[in-house]
Design a protein around this nucleic acid. Structure first.
Lengths: 202, 202
DNA sequence: TTTTTTATTAATCATTTGTTTAATTCAGAT
DNA sequence: ATCTGAATTAAACAAATGATTAATAAAAAA
């Protein structure tokens, strides 16, 4: 058993994640975290040394968990390009519905500190993945328009992720409930792959 | 002459904008602002009462300036749908190249407080704009696929804005210089309108 | 049980941070 | 030149915040 886990340690991490996602690093105080997790303030430093260390751990774990479920998708040699896009959309959207604040959190906190992101093992390979190889092949065959592959990747992520980042504004503007918004995102699981293919097809 | 302007007042606002964009509201201290603008700390409260008031002013002005240049675009009855998309892309991208931190800043700070956004006069009308009318007409005529217009709008903004929000990560991952990134965004001014049209055309 | 290590607590420290005050300088009006 | 109100400054205040300490409780090892 790797019950190397302490109940309080977990509680702190969960509370910290909730608050960091919602308020960001500098918007969250150690006392907020202590209160949210019902632990004594000193326990935070006892288990994690400092607010910053705690933050780093949460950022790493969050990011790792998110990325690792993805890498395999666009590196699977058994699926076609179109299948990859479908699976990618579906998974990303599902994951982000579960945690809608995640993209905004990650992009913001890494803004002034993107180097720490590079420490992730799964990061650098997207542009050298099977997905890109297949796209390039399609270009060579004359099926797809020739555009920098980076645009292709950006577009996929843009269409998937961005709506979540402006969901608070969207919901206010269009008077959407959380469920209506969720419904729209569910729709997009099927729509985006079509759009992407239409975009690149000649 | 409305030289109702005070040199120091301006200096404070400029410094505050720079810092708020870079570090966010809670990541910026009043002393940071004082130092950046070379004014005495007390002048901030003398002119703006509080850090929060100063922030509200900057958020409002920034947003207003940004939005007002856009509303006219998608409400112009003289341009076609495709022209609107082209102009929209071109302007948004130009503006965001000038101030790449703006989207991230706005979306983040409004995340927990989107109501203040609704106070903007130019906000609510996008979904009732000429752009949407023309899209709906196209659908009726059978030229365009029938999809919720909200998706159509989201897609445009996603493709335009999102790349800027992940530019720090993109640049690190792909080893891009600022100018190379800018080049990619310039390319997109022409690419996005094509993509959008391809996406909606039957 | 006794001892030793680990976990938890309340209190405290040292900075940081937003804001205010009281004194001083400056500019324009009289 | 003098007076008046606005602009500026250094200093200080009070609250918030990250972190530590010393004492206590709980758990594990002896």
């Amino acid at each position: 058993m790797d019950s190397n886990f302490s109940q309080t340690e977990l509680k702190i991490k969960e509370a910290a994640k909730t608050l960091f996602l919602k308020k960001g690093y500098s918007g969250t105080t150690t006392r907020d975290i202590a209160k949210e997790s019902n632990i004594n303030l000193a326990m935070l430093n006892y288990y994690f040394r400092s607010k910053w260390k705690l933050f780093e751990i949460i950022m790493f774990e969050t990011l790792y968990e998110f990325l690792s479920t993805m890498v395999e998708v666009y590196n699977d040699p058994l699926t076609s390009l179109e299948e990859k896009i479908e699976i990618c959309c579906s998974r990303y959207i599902d994951k982000t519905i579960e945690e809608p604040l995640l993209p905004s959190f990650v992009l913001n906190e890494l803004k002034n500190n993107p180097s720490s992101f590079l420490k992730m093992p799964t990061t650098k390979m997207i542009m050298k993945s099977e997905l890109i190889l297949q796209y390039n092949e399609g270009v060579k065959k004359g099926i797809y328009n020739k555009v920098e592959p980076i645009h292709f990747v950006i577009n996929i992520f843009s269409l998937i992720v961005f709506p979540f980042m402006c969901s608070p504004i969207m919901m206010k503007m269009e008077n959407l409930s959380k469920n209506e918004f969720k419904g729209l995102m569910e729709e997009r699981k099927k729509l985006i792959p079509n759009w992407i293919i239409q975009m690149i097809k000649k």
